[in-house]
Design a protein around this nucleic acid. Structure first.
Lengths: 232, 232
DNA sequence: GCCGACGATTGATTTTTATCAAGCCCCACG
DNA sequence: CGTGGGGCTTGATAAAAATCAATCGTCGGC
């Protein structure tokens, strides 16, 4: 494919400082594919053959062990999956499935590693990307270790609220089932957690949540920038 | 200080491919200091002024929120703390305290970032270090999200056992209080978890644990290389 | 050598969370 | 149009984990 097909990829922080030459040669070996929904793109344990970049749609990263399964995160356009495995030439630690029909760019990992060796600016961009990803998961780990499930939900709602402009209402971006798994609880418990938050001005109507008493919700949630702010 | 003072630092994966020149100039601005035990080196939220490298002793990384506190990890010689914050020029997400009298090398973060800009081999070494750290915490997050506390303990014991040569007995590297916090449980619950493992051949005597029925313990723990193996 | 602090353990109890079961609603599909 | 399945909720119950309280033992400091 040609790089002109995907200006938005070129604008990714990961690629924008890359030399034109390197970028072109990466794009030449890349595949742009459209996948149906609910398709397993990656199974954990498989060798990392490709770097995946979500162009349209969305992808769920999840992990399994014994019979259990947990959603790790949702990747939306334009975002990359599992850069760390690609760089280390290791196996994937997480599985990935499309949530809906999605357009994905696949770049062979050997070519990513070659570009990383050749292009110093690219190597530096990767460092920033990895450092950001690392700090992101540190925050999620703290969230899970230091808070109860009701607190996690309250803080997540406040974060959504801020992301969405902060006008008192929130649109849940995914199914409640997935939200529950992201927050480390069962769907039943998520439902009950919403009920617990009712006295704090949380009114649920399907995917729409109204926050009618923010100060009281904040008092309960005690949001912490070192856990909740998106990119500190 | 002179680089000849610390051959073991030069041998760190992070520094070994660095140019002699860059390494020398980093070492010139570095401080080697000895701290007493139980001293708070870093408070989360502070700007990342230094990269810390543990030369002797050990350092506990922990996080706080509301009243609660959780141990994130223990760094032993020769290991680095909070590289990601240094590279992003951000605030620390975790606090750090010495566990015992410890010798620490401090390198101003601005100098680390300068070296990262100048020395391409160093930039690449950082990528590997960060990717490894990222995958490490992904595993811990999976551990916490997908297993019960007894399973976490069983798997941790099996990992210690392997690290220590696998001769049927295990020496716990830290206080049980810290082990409990690392595993995401209270000390009381750790004690009870050891008791529930007794039928699986786990005999505790202080910091010494004897594993007398490995196959039965493994059957319970169901170790998973994508969670438990140190550096996959 | 004694005291006090702290780690560890145990028991009793409460809180939190998961599991099991049933029912509702809505939408896609025949 | 009806029907079936999936997402969601609710209730009842069970399991897991935390909390509170008390005790024991050890070790360092006075």
């Amino acid at each position: 494919m040609r790089s002109s097909d995907l200006p938005e990829v070129r604008e990714l922080a990961l690629f924008e400082s890359m030399s034109a030459e390197c970028f072109e040669s990466l794009m030449r070996v890349a595949y742009l594919q459209t996948f149906p929904g609910q398709l397993e793109l990656i199974a954990e344990g498989d060798p990392a053959d490709f770097l995946y970049i979500v162009i349209e749609g969305s992808v769920e990263l999840y992990a399994k062990s014994n019979g259990r399964e947990a959603t790790m995160s949702i990747v939306r356009p334009v975002g990359t999956l599992i850069l760390a495995a690609v760089l280390k030439d290791a196996v994937y630690l997480m599985s990935a499935r499309t949530r809906e029909k999605s357009k994905i760019l696949l770049i062979p990992s050997e070519d990513i590693r070659a570009a990383f060796r050749q292009d110093n600016d690219f190597a530096r961009a990767i460092v920033v990307e990895l450092a950001t990803a690392y700090r992101g998961i540190v925050k999620e780990y703290k969230d899970l270790k230091l808070r109860s499930s009701v607190e996690r939900l309250a803080n997540r709602l406040l974060r959504f609220h801020e992301d969405q402009g902060g006008n008192g209402s929130v649109e849940l971006p995914d199914d409640k089932k997935i939200l529950a798994s992201q927050l480390g609880m069962t769907p039943e418990n998520l439902s009950r957690a919403f009920n617990t938050l009712k006295p704090y001005g949380v009114e649920v109507d399907g995917a729409l949540v109204r926050l009618t008493d923010l100060s009281s919700l904040r008092r309960l949630a005690k949001p912490n920038p070192l856990i909740d702010s998106p990119s500190t």
